[in-house]
Amino acid sequence: MRRAMVRVQTTVNGQPAEFLCEPRQSLLECLRDILGLTGTKEGCNDGNCGACAVIMDGRLVNSCLVLGVEAEGRTILTIEGLARGSELHPIQRAFLEQGAVQCGFCTPGLILATKALLDRIADPSEAEIRRWLANHLCRCTGYDKVVRAVRQAAAELKEACR
Protein backbone atom coordinates (compact mmCIF):
# COMPACT_ATOMS: atom_id res chain seq x y z
CA MET A 1 0.00 0.00 0.00
CA ARG A 2 1.39 3.39 -0.99
CA ARG A 3 0.84 6.23 1.37
CA ALA A 4 -0.08 9.68 0.12
CA MET A 5 2.86 12.03 0.51
CA VAL A 6 2.47 15.75 0.95
CA ARG A 7 4.82 18.31 -0.52
CA VAL A 8 5.84 20.99 1.98
CA GLN A 9 7.57 24.25 1.10
CA THR A 10 9.09 26.08 4.02
CA THR A 11 12.11 28.09 5.15
CA VAL A 12 14.63 26.45 7.47
CA ASN A 13 17.54 28.39 8.92
CA GLY A 14 17.19 31.15 6.35
CA GLN A 15 17.14 28.85 3.32
CA PRO A 16 14.13 27.64 1.33
CA ALA A 17 13.47 23.98 2.01
CA GLU A 18 11.14 21.58 0.27
CA PHE A 19 10.30 18.02 1.28
CA LEU A 20 7.79 15.23 0.91
CA CYS A 21 6.31 13.76 4.06
CA GLU A 22 3.47 11.60 5.27
CA PRO A 23 0.68 13.58 6.91
CA ARG A 24 1.30 11.74 10.19
CA GLN A 25 4.96 12.70 10.43
CA SER A 26 5.88 15.31 13.00
CA LEU A 27 8.02 18.33 12.21
CA LEU A 28 10.64 16.73 14.47
CA GLU A 29 10.75 13.66 12.23
CA CYS A 30 10.85 15.76 9.08
CA LEU A 31 13.74 17.83 10.39
CA ARG A 32 15.73 14.82 11.58
CA ASP A 33 14.89 12.07 9.12
CA ILE A 34 14.13 13.96 5.91
CA LEU A 35 16.18 17.15 6.12
CA GLY A 36 19.03 15.55 8.10
CA LEU A 37 18.97 18.24 10.79
CA THR A 38 19.69 15.92 13.72
CA GLY A 39 20.63 18.73 16.12
CA THR A 40 16.96 18.82 17.18
CA LYS A 41 16.54 16.00 19.71
CA GLU A 42 13.76 13.56 20.49
CA GLY A 43 13.50 13.06 24.23
CA CYS A 44 9.88 12.04 24.74
CA ASN A 45 7.87 12.65 21.56
CA ASP A 46 4.92 13.89 23.61
CA GLY A 47 5.73 17.49 24.41
CA ASN A 48 6.99 17.04 27.96
CA CYS A 49 10.77 17.46 27.81
CA GLY A 50 11.51 20.38 25.47
CA ALA A 51 14.53 18.74 23.81
CA CYS A 52 12.94 19.13 20.36
CA ALA A 53 12.16 22.86 20.68
CA VAL A 54 12.60 24.98 17.55
CA ILE A 55 11.52 28.51 16.74
CA MET A 56 8.69 28.69 14.19
CA ASP A 57 7.65 32.13 12.97
CA GLY A 58 9.31 33.63 16.05
CA ARG A 59 7.55 31.32 18.52
CA LEU A 60 9.14 28.54 20.51
CA VAL A 61 7.40 25.24 19.72
CA ASN A 62 7.95 21.59 20.56
CA SER A 63 8.57 20.20 17.09
CA CYS A 64 7.24 16.79 18.16
CA LEU A 65 3.81 18.41 18.60
CA VAL A 66 3.82 20.12 15.21
CA LEU A 67 3.06 18.15 12.07
CA GLY A 68 5.49 18.41 9.21
CA VAL A 69 2.69 19.64 6.95
CA GLU A 70 2.13 22.56 9.33
CA ALA A 71 5.54 23.91 8.38
CA GLU A 72 4.13 24.96 4.99
CA GLY A 73 4.96 28.60 4.39
CA ARG A 74 6.57 29.08 7.78
CA THR A 75 10.02 30.14 8.89
CA ILE A 76 11.85 27.72 11.14
CA LEU A 77 15.04 28.18 13.13
CA THR A 78 16.82 25.11 14.45
CA ILE A 79 20.02 24.87 16.47
CA GLU A 80 21.99 24.43 13.25
CA GLY A 81 20.96 27.93 12.15
CA LEU A 82 22.07 29.92 15.17
CA ALA A 83 25.82 30.37 14.72
CA ARG A 84 26.89 33.02 12.23
CA GLY A 85 29.42 31.41 9.92
CA SER A 86 32.24 30.13 12.10
CA GLU A 87 31.24 32.40 15.01
CA LEU A 88 29.15 31.01 17.83
CA HIS A 89 26.07 33.01 18.79
CA PRO A 90 26.55 34.79 22.16
CA ILE A 91 24.01 32.41 23.72
CA GLN A 92 26.00 29.38 22.57
CA ARG A 93 29.21 30.92 23.89
CA ALA A 94 27.60 31.76 27.23
CA PHE A 95 26.44 28.14 27.65
CA LEU A 96 30.03 26.98 27.14
CA GLU A 97 31.69 29.62 29.30
CA GLN A 98 29.30 29.07 32.20
CA GLY A 99 29.60 25.27 32.06
CA ALA A 100 25.87 24.99 31.33
CA VAL A 101 26.38 21.97 29.07
CA GLN A 102 26.93 18.50 30.47
CA CYS A 103 25.61 15.69 28.31
CA GLY A 104 24.42 18.21 25.72
CA PHE A 105 21.19 16.46 24.80
CA CYS A 106 18.80 19.09 26.16
CA THR A 107 21.18 21.86 25.12
CA PRO A 108 19.78 22.63 21.62
CA GLY A 109 16.30 23.07 23.08
CA LEU A 110 17.55 25.16 25.98
CA ILE A 111 19.58 27.42 23.70
CA LEU A 112 16.63 28.03 21.38
CA ALA A 113 14.40 28.64 24.40
CA THR A 114 16.91 31.22 25.59
CA LYS A 115 16.86 32.87 22.17
CA ALA A 116 13.07 33.03 22.21
CA LEU A 117 13.09 34.42 25.76
CA LEU A 118 15.69 37.11 25.07
CA ASP A 119 13.94 38.12 21.86
CA ARG A 120 10.91 38.83 24.03
CA ILE A 121 12.45 40.08 27.29
CA ALA A 122 15.91 41.58 26.90
CA ASP A 123 16.77 41.56 30.58
CA PRO A 124 14.81 38.82 32.34
CA SER A 125 14.92 38.31 36.10
CA GLU A 126 16.02 34.98 37.57
CA ALA A 127 12.36 34.14 38.26
CA GLU A 128 11.41 34.92 34.66
CA ILE A 129 14.27 32.78 33.38
CA ARG A 130 13.33 29.83 35.57
CA ARG A 131 9.66 30.08 34.64
CA TRP A 132 10.51 30.21 30.92
CA LEU A 133 12.93 27.28 31.14
CA ALA A 134 10.51 25.16 33.18
CA ASN A 135 9.25 23.60 29.92
CA HIS A 136 12.69 22.09 29.39
CA LEU A 137 13.99 19.19 31.40
CA CYS A 138 17.70 19.00 32.05
CA ARG A 139 18.77 16.00 34.12
CA CYS A 140 22.50 16.85 34.38
CA THR A 141 23.00 20.42 35.55
CA GLY A 142 20.43 21.20 38.23
CA TYR A 143 19.77 24.36 36.14
CA ASP A 144 22.02 26.73 38.12
CA LYS A 145 24.67 27.13 35.44
CA VAL A 146 22.00 27.25 32.73
CA VAL A 147 20.39 30.24 34.47
CA ARG A 148 23.81 31.89 34.72
CA ALA A 149 24.39 31.31 31.02
CA VAL A 150 21.08 32.97 30.16
CA ARG A 151 22.04 35.97 32.30
CA GLN A 152 25.45 36.24 30.65
CA ALA A 153 23.89 36.03 27.19
CA ALA A 154 21.31 38.67 28.10
CA ALA A 155 24.02 41.03 29.31
CA GLU A 156 26.14 40.52 26.20
CA LEU A 157 23.28 40.90 23.77
CA LYS A 158 22.15 44.09 25.53
CA GLU A 159 25.69 45.43 25.33
CA ALA A 160 25.85 44.57 21.61
CA CYS A 161 22.60 46.47 20.98
CA ARG A 162 24.00 49.73 22.34
Binding site: R32, T38, E42, I79, E80, L82, Q92, G104, T107
Partner: peptide
Amino acid sequence: VRHDGADKVTGRAKFGADVR
Protein backbone atom coordinates in the same frame (compact mmCIF):
# COMPACT_ATOMS: atom_id res chain seq x y z
CA VAL B 1 35.89 25.49 27.80
CA ARG B 2 35.44 21.81 27.14
CA HIS B 3 36.78 20.22 23.99
CA ASP B 4 33.42 18.96 22.73
CA GLY B 5 31.74 22.25 23.63
CA ALA B 6 31.23 23.72 20.16
CA ASP B 7 29.69 20.49 18.85
CA LYS B 8 27.30 20.34 21.80
CA VAL B 9 25.93 23.89 21.31
CA THR B 10 25.61 23.74 17.52
CA GLY B 11 23.72 20.46 17.22
CA ARG B 12 26.68 18.83 15.53
CA ALA B 13 27.45 16.34 18.32
CA LYS B 14 26.44 12.86 17.15
CA PHE B 15 24.25 10.96 19.56
CA GLY B 16 23.20 7.38 18.82
CA ALA B 17 19.88 8.31 17.22
CA ASP B 18 21.73 10.70 14.89
CA VAL B 19 23.56 7.88 13.12
CA ARG B 20 22.61 7.70 9.45
